[in-house]
Design a protein around this nucleic acid. Sequence first.
DNA 1: CATGAAAAGAACGCAAC
DNA 2: GTTGCGTTCTTTTCATG
Lengths: 156, 156
Amino acid sequence: MTKLDNIDRQLLEFLQADSKLNVKEIASQLKMTKTPIYERIKRYEREEIIEKYVAVLNRKKVSNSMVVFCSVSLESQKLEKIDEFNMAVTNIPEVIECYLMGGSNDYLLKVVVKDLNAYHQFSSGKLAALPNVAQIKSTFVLNEVKRSTVFPLKIE
Amino acid sequence: MTKLDNIDRQLLEFLQADSKLNVKEIASQLKMTKTPIYERIKRYEREEIIEKYVAVLNRKKVSNSMVVFCSVSLESQKLEKIDEFNMAVTNIPEVIECYLMGGSNDYLLKVVVKDLNAYHQFSSGKLAALPNVAQIKSTFVLNEVKRSTVFPLKIE
DNA sequence: CATGAAAAGAACGCAAC
DNA sequence: GTTGCGTTCTTTTCATG
């Protein structure tokens, strides 16, 4: 884990909000000059503190789609079986997030599909077909109240 | 909703994976020239198909933190109360995602905190203090199997 | 759509303080 | 850390086919 100072935190906040900001602009906002800002950013990239830069799409502008959270429980919790499931689920494009949860040891999946029918296909076809799947419970998203990619650096 | 052709889809896939790719590179990969690629990208930005460009951080490199999913139910489902809750929850930095779910009409929140103690503070202090909150159930993430920001354009 | 030219701006590297 | 300069790369605009 890397120690961050206050400038690091502010700078990373900026870049998480808008990675197209240029070095000059950021520098003036942080009341510094270009050189140290530039060097910090390069350091983040080198040390993979910044993993990547991505374009975020407006889901509603590109497709009629729906988001579903599925809770998936496995038949076996053996490490080997877990790994097998992890691998398989990672390769399904509809599954954009997948977490192993504490307590019940279920998985929580965030899934994007075109419509209810597509969800049925996905759930009964792709998901239930994965090795070791015992049970699937689905809950549909009615409204996205907040969806941020910003990791909060001020919680420390 | 905007109609996308195959080039649009490929181009948006590229930009979702890596927004630092320059126009020249993308053009050569798609076997086209700079001009049309450039103009398409500008169109996406103008029409807000691309919402923003962001830096994605490696959570583990910047802090010891944990992710918690909370299911929150409200006392009243009145629109006014709903709006009030939505507004309030959006302003909490620890809450990075919030969805209104079908079925039970609960909210699902994705929360980032430093540790269990911080989660207790957050849950009993900030979250339970919000107007209209009836019940909070928390489940902790043991392992992030997949976390993608890519919206799948091939599900159509 | 392709091609190429040209201007403006940003990134990048380097030197001196 | 700052300031400044120069080179290279991208972006952006424009004209032509």
